[in-house]
Design a protein around this nucleic acid. Sequence first.
DNA 1: TATGAATGAGTTTTCATTCAT
DNA 2: TATGAATGAAAACTCATTCAT
Lengths: 203, 203, 203, 203
Amino acid sequence: MSTDTAEDKVRRERRETILRAAAKVFAQFGYFRAKVSDVARAAGVADGTVYLYFRNKDDLLTSIFNWAMEEFVTQAREELPEIVDPREQLRRFAQLHFGLIERERDLAIVFQVELRHSTRFMERFSTTYLAEYLQILREAIEAGQTAGVFRKQLNSKVHAKFLFGILDGMATNWVLSRKSNSLSSMVDPVLELFLNGVNERHA
Amino acid sequence: MSTDTAEDKVRRERRETILRAAAKVFAQFGYFRAKVSDVARAAGVADGTVYLYFRNKDDLLTSIFNWAMEEFVTQAREELPEIVDPREQLRRFAQLHFGLIERERDLAIVFQVELRHSTRFMERFSTTYLAEYLQILREAIEAGQTAGVFRKQLNSKVHAKFLFGILDGMATNWVLSRKSNSLSSMVDPVLELFLNGVNERHA
Amino acid sequence: MSTDTAEDKVRRERRETILRAAAKVFAQFGYFRAKVSDVARAAGVADGTVYLYFRNKDDLLTSIFNWAMEEFVTQAREELPEIVDPREQLRRFAQLHFGLIERERDLAIVFQVELRHSTRFMERFSTTYLAEYLQILREAIEAGQTAGVFRKQLNSKVHAKFLFGILDGMATNWVLSRKSNSLSSMVDPVLELFLNGVNERHA
Amino acid sequence: MSTDTAEDKVRRERRETILRAAAKVFAQFGYFRAKVSDVARAAGVADGTVYLYFRNKDDLLTSIFNWAMEEFVTQAREELPEIVDPREQLRRFAQLHFGLIERERDLAIVFQVELRHSTRFMERFSTTYLAEYLQILREAIEAGQTAGVFRKQLNSKVHAKFLFGILDGMATNWVLSRKSNSLSSMVDPVLELFLNGVNERHA
DNA sequence: TATGAATGAGTTTTCATTCAT
DNA sequence: TATGAATGAAAACTCATTCAT
């Protein structure tokens, strides 16, 4: 407790300021076209200050990634267990996913677009957060199979990937399209499609 | 016709050599990390020669994009009309999509990963080829609705996007994952899911 | 006198702490590669504190230089007059020189290596301390000539430079070599050579 | 033969132009204060061109070092065997040393001053060229001992170091002093001192 | 048409120094 | 006096593009 001083707080806040500025600038220009000095200016600090909080330009990207993923996975792990119906779990999961994307558009652009061209990020993503993401989906699907609402013979791992693919693809589309009609409003149609696809009645 | 001399042919072939080299190099290093001289070396020509066939580095990317999209759309426009069942049209469409991705892995990496971080490309893609892609899907869906095999009340435009989202997302996953179990083999499960989702029986 | 308060003493001591830290750090990394913050850390003070005692990084180097030279020249000026034989004066001088180098290895590295690349330092060194150093040697040589133990026709100024050149060169070698067998033990062989070279018997 | 084309020659000459420019600029400003763009300007080429011939700034320094040392050692190895009297061999060696220093003042400044603060260079120098330099001196001294003109009991290795120390020290002094009265003219006095010091008559 | 050496604009990163606390 | 976070100037190095051959 006593270790979290006022100075620590100031430090944490400034770090987040720079991180949000980086997300904004990377979202606007793309990671490679963005200059560190753009980030600094957007954060209202001197160029050198960025390097007091982050090792280098690359570390900014990594940190955005970790920040966003942790927020999402933590939230999902907290909320979902409270929901009984597996179908509603999946719906809630999609809402969380799309909600975060909508709330943090800059982060989302970076995440959906900029991070994808880095093998390193993608490998790390695949083995850590994505694995966790898919695991959460899989648990819900298997719960649904156990509960008799999803067809038993479908491969929960494959269908978890399907659902991720759909949600991720739509997120990318939304992020890349200017018009920006609500992404959240797509949750119900998408889930309807998916749930129809896996529904027990259609064995 | 008579203007398409042997020299023109040589020129066209060398252009394609460079383009394939660019796809390979961009796929390996990423667009921004790839050097024009890497492309030149991979193509077996001098650095300057690249500029005799392409305006600049950016033009290489644009050209890869157009080349790949044209091949795909042309093929789809040719083959699909010959298929009667709208469900088989969709399946064939997915096969074409995944087949191209598998056959031209370098192109696919560039297309799925590198092109995505360019707003300019994505805007252009959205308004031209993607529009055409979605239009093809939409026509098949509407044909299915007319034929009474797909639910009438579903929004053909939205569901075309769904299917694109799923296919595109899976293509990205396949491209980014090392393991590379067949992508084509996923066509049937994916289509099963989608067709179940839109099937008339599940109104 | 009464102005030399306890506070002054604290100040003087802290100044020396920083100076020794600077010598150590410069010796280890070289002046240009050494950071002021390295010096501060080695001295156990904050970066800013260094600037309360020294104008800038350069002033640290200048101050090391003056400190070392003053100690040496003062000592030589005190001890040598008490020695009668000019040959023993030269021997004692060499002992003082090598003894200081051995005792203050960090200072010596800075002095022998780091200071040499600065024209400014070397000019200042040449016109002040080196001049004094050579003057001391010259006086001993001339005393030897008067006493009839050194050849009269040799140029005392030139031979003072010779001896400095030998001693300085050996000091540099010792400083740069890892092995570090005693430098002091070289005093006698060196002096034997030099004294043979200038001995009256070989006119 | 046929491999040394006109292009190779142009390349070699341009490399040397840049190397000489680097020596000049490093000599004037010191290695750390000199900018690569200063070197480029002095050589009459663009900044980037420097990097077509040298890996980095450091490589410029290394290359100056190798160039100078190779020229000296080669020349010494060629000329000395033709001289019979070991005393004249030493004298000729000193003339070559001082002659090179005088002829290539920029190189000499870099060599005597700039290179000395680099542990890396000094280690390399000590184990390669300096070792060869000392070996040449040692052979001459031992030849003198065999011929009965130098005292047998003196340690040839130690005295080779002495002579190097004297010559190197004088070279450094000459290089650092503006006045620049001839360095070559010091060869005879220095050698007189040294030869007197090692002369057989003074056992 | 093909070449590849030369160019020089552009960007990340470091670190001496300052100054509010 | 002491601190150390913030500053921003400065420089090495890269690489897309040009152009003389």
